[in-house]
Amino acid sequence: MSNTIISTNFNFPGQKRVYHGKVREVYTLENNLLLMVATDRLSAFDVVMPKGIPYKGQILNQIATKMMEATKDIVPNWLIAVPDPNVAIGEACEPFKVEMVIRGYLSGHAAREYKLGKRMLCGVSMPEGMKENDKFPESIITPATKAEMGDHDEDISREDIIKRGIVSEEDYRQLEDYTHKLFKRGSEIASKRGLILVDTKYEFGKTKNGEIVLIDEIHTPDSSRYFYADGYELRQKNNEPQKQLSKEFVRQWLIENGFQGLEGQTVPVMTDEYIHSVSERYIELYENITGETFVKADVSNIHQRIEKNVLEYLK
């Protein structure tokens, strides 16, 4: 399990600064370029787990970049090149300080709130009489404020975002429009693969020319929840849990082991066997969502490989 990339400390030509996110390391370079390294870190309940997951960074990066390619006709994005399996290079943008979360089904956080008797989430009403994993009559947008590392993202309403000046009303309308279009396309892609895109989040930024573009990741198991379409209706009818491909299985394992990221709680020990099983689940999602066999990159010296590939590209 040692051949994982947990942190980076590169010094690329023209490098101006580096930001260490929960999962990604973001290098700002000259010429308005941003270089994003997807690490093998695993984050759940806004807490970074102590061990990395083999190939997770490669999987996230490759799904995200493939999905950006598959949606660029409907929503512009920041991506320019993919010089390494774990690296994406694109145009530096000013990120909006909100995550656009969109839900087609009552699952995850929405289901947990619903069980507590809440029928309003981020200023959006949820119908009475629903059970976990039911489809909403129409998909709902439930935004969250962007948090710095270690802080929890917070639910926020459309009205509060505009009232507090986090995003202008004009820009927010564009974000909503793009979010619905991306979710529709993502759902169509998933459907062709026998999957249901349950919910996901998108992040956007503004280029120096003022254009709103999609940034960060899209339709990955870290940002999205997928169900298998086959048997969905029967499982709902029988009140059985849905068979899913997402990070939710990690969250459930943590909850079962007494951890929800709350104060005083300790992350349970993740055995090598468990970490291997998580890696296998990520590979399974990659192959299901892309329809391609996952090709493991050479991990004998990941840092050296990344540095070599990036330097060749920057030449």
Score class of each variant (00 low, 15 high):
2 S>A: 15
5 I>Q: 07
6 I>H: 00
8 T>R: 08
13 P>H: 08
18 V>W: 04
19 Y>I: 09
21 G>Y: 01
25 E>V: 04
27 Y>I: 15
28 T>F: 04
29 L>N: 09
33 L>Y: 10
54 P>I: 07
60 L>I: 02
62 Q>Y: 04
63 I>N: 11
64 A>Q: 10
68 M>T: 07
68 M>N: 03
75 V>E: 06
81 A>M: 09
83 P>V: 15
85 P>C: 10
85 P>S: 03
87 V>S: 12
89 I>C: 06
89 I>N: 10
90 G>W: 06
96 F>N: 02
98 V>D: 10
99 E>D: 09
100 M>Q: 12
101 V>K: 11
105 Y>C: 03
108 G>F: 03
114 Y>H: 14
116 L>A: 12
126 M>G: 05
130 M>G: 11
134 D>Q: 11
136 F>E: 14
137 P>R: 15
139 S>R: 15
141 I>S: 14
142 T>N: 05
146 K>H: 12
146 K>Y: 08
161 I>D: 00
167 V>Q: 13
167 V>A: 10
168 S>P: 06
171 D>A: 12
177 D>P: 08
177 D>S: 13
178 Y>E: 00
179 T>I: 11
180 H>W: 10
180 H>M: 04
184 K>D: 09
198 V>L: 01
202 Y>H: 10
208 K>T: 11
211 E>T: 12
214 L>I: 04
216 D>T: 06
217 E>M: 09
223 S>D: 04
226 Y>R: 07
232 Y>S: 13
234 L>A: 13
239 N>L: 14
241 P>Y: 03
251 R>N: 07
251 R>Y: 02
257 N>D: 02
259 F>K: 11
260 Q>L: 04
261 G>L: 00
264 G>D: 11
270 M>V: 12
271 T>Q: 02
272 D>Y: 02
278 V>S: 08
282 Y>K: 01
282 Y>G: 11
284 E>L: 15
288 N>K: 14
292 E>N: 14
307 E>F: 05
308 K>V: 09
309 N>R: 15
310 V>E: 11
312 E>C: 02
